[in-house]
Simulated assay, not measured.
Amino acid sequence: MYKYGFQNYFEANFTALYPEVVKSGHWINVYLTFEFSKDTMLPADLTDPSALVVFDLEGEVQDFIVHDEGVDSEYKFTDTEKKKLLDFITQQNLI
Rank of each mutant, 00 (worst) to 15 (best):
F14V: 03
F34G: 08
T90V: 13
D63I: 00
D72L: 04
E58R: 12
G25W: 13
T78F: 05
Q91V: 00
L46F: 06
Y31K: 02
P43W: 11
D56L: 09
D39M: 02
V30H: 00
D68Y: 09
F55C: 05
D45P: 11
A51V: 00
V71A: 14
E60D: 13
T15I: 13
K23I: 15
Q62R: 14
T90A: 11
F64I: 04
V21Y: 04
D72N: 10
D39Y: 00
F6M: 11
G70S: 09
E81L: 08
V53S: 02
H26C: 12
Y9K: 12
Y9D: 10
W27E: 14
S37G: 14
S50C: 10
E35I: 01
G59V: 10
Q91Y: 02
V53W: 02
L85Q: 01
F88Q: 02
S37E: 12
P49G: 02
E74K: 12
L86A: 04
F64Q: 00
F34L: 01
L94V: 03
E74V: 12
L86W: 05
T40C: 08
T40F: 09
L52P: 01
H67N: 14
V22H: 07
G59N: 07
V22R: 14
G5C: 06
L57P: 07
W27G: 00
K3D: 09
D79L: 08
A44S: 15
A12F: 03
K83A: 11
F88E: 01
S24A: 14
T33A: 11
K82R: 08
V66E: 06
L32C: 00
K82D: 01
K76G: 02
V21W: 07
V54H: 06
F36K: 12
Y31V: 02
L46A: 04
D39P: 00
V61S: 04
L86N: 07
T78G: 06
D56M: 11
A44N: 15
L17Q: 01
P43L: 11
K84H: 07
V21N: 03
I89C: 05
F64R: 01
M1Y: 09
W27T: 10
S37D: 15
V61A: 05
M1K: 05
I65A: 03
F6K: 13
G59C: 09
V71Q: 15
E35Q: 12
V22I: 15
E20Y: 08
G25M: 13
D45Y: 12
Y75P: 05
F64G: 00
F10E: 03
E69W: 08
F14W: 08
E81V: 07
K3M: 13
L32I: 07
S50G: 15
E11C: 02
S50F: 10
E11F: 06
E20Q: 14
V54G: 02
D45F: 12
G5I: 06
M1F: 09
G25N: 15
L94K: 04
V53N: 03
E20K: 15
V21G: 04
L94W: 06
Y2T: 05
D45G: 09
A16Q: 11
Y31N: 05
D56A: 09
I28N: 05
